[in-house]
Design a binder for these strands. Structure first.
Lengths: 217, 217
DNA sequence: CTTTGTGAAATTATTCACAGCA
DNA sequence: TGCTGTGAATAATTTCACAAAG
């Protein structure tokens, strides 16, 4: 067994890509898939794919490739998505509603079990089948429903306060849609999705690609 | 003038974080900010901050730090957000609507100038002040409004087709919300935001931290 | 004093290239 | 033949540490 105690961060990021691709292979009935094929589908070198998958153990077959469904199962297990994750959503605004309507979550094992909002005008109403709860119920909800991930779709100025509440309620991780860094105890993981930051990075790449040549004159 | 095209990818990712922080400094009236302060606010080492900012030129002051508004301007210029970027949105579903209601885009120089959808039931209707246009208008719209970025908020199975249409229409970059890799000519940049993938990565980190399968820093 | 900018060193990540297997 | 798994080589990135500057 290889040393499984430490998976490099960049490799960890690619794991969910491999899972997606393995899922496609399984769905279309493909028996095996090679590191080259996976790599081409995802824009990664074949050597990189092999290195990454070897981190999870040896289950490829020389001359053949990886068994698609074994790969799929192995990745699900490694990522922890072989069983269900209960999540809760804080913030029933634009982004929150989009997430509630995002069917892909449940298909991949993530269930939004409860929705919270601090706006009293929203509390008690039902949005896309979810009753909006008051923040005061956060703690009991996390315990009763065994929620492990809190999804924060709140304004940036509320992010730290909500994060603190979620941590106190006992979640293990946060998915943060507010473009603000929040301080957390290092027992709690966070991953941020920043729309504006993404656009800025994209703009930078375009800008640099176009400006880089023109400016050397 | 520094050569923007030679900025390392990880550094480029941090640039938008620095911009956010510099913006906060300017807004609260702070005159100067040091690499240590920036680093602490963003979870990056001070040496890293200095290396990154030095890529844009030398504008720090020994013993003092960086002039907040000069830093802000410099970053905006480097990222290309000192000028307006016209974008268009394809897909007026859940995610598309959330993006239309996301005020932060315009505040940072990104304007959604037009919205498209392939559903004939939506075309012609107005959503959050935007008339939904048929896909057939894509080409003329890009030209007339000088759109450079296409935002794809479409189902995964439509992603490649829509990407092809956007490329043909002449955009320079794509912001993709579908969890599927799309093939593009390498003159066109793409950046993908994958909700499910993000959740999977978060779940992996939690899972790994708890299960002994850790991720190295 | 404090803080920048930057070579040099250390660390981390990727690619190469090939032995070994089916 | 086609392919994996993996050490070795390479490349990229981060950290160190300090001279120079205010």
């Amino acid at each position: 067994m290889p040393d499984r105690s430490s998976i490099p961060r960049p490799a960890a990021k690619r794991l969910s890509l491999y899972l997606r691709e393995a899922g496609i292979c399984v769905r279309i009935g493909r028996q095996t898939v090679s590191s080259r094929q996976l790599g081409e589908a995802l824009g990664v070198s074949d050597a990189q794919v092999r290195k990454d998958l070897a981190l999870l153990g040896q289950f490829g077959q020389s001359g053949v490739g990886y068994d698609a469904s074994a790969l799929y199962q192995q990745l699900r297990q490694a990522l922890g998505t072989d069983r269900n994750w209960n999540t809760l959503l804080v913030g029933a605004g634009n982004i929150g509603r989009a997430l509630l309507g995002h069917a892909a979550f449940e298909a991949e094992g993530f269930k939004i079990t409860a929705v919270f909002d601090s706006a009293t005008s929203l509390v008690g109403t039902t949005i896309i089948g979810h009753r909006i709860r008051p923040m005061s119920e956060l703690g009991s909800c996390v315990k009763e429903l065994r929620v492990r991930i809190g999804i924060m779709a709140v304004p940036r100025d509320a992010a730290q306060v909500v994060a603190d509440q979620l941590v106190r309620a006992g979640v293990s991780g946060l998915l943060n849609f507010a473009s603000r860094r929040v301080e957390l105890p290092d027992t709690v993981r966070i991953l941020s999705v920043d729309f504006t930051g993404s656009l800025e990075r994209l703009a930078f790449e375009i800008h640099a690609a176009e400006g880089g040549l023109a400016e050397s004159a």
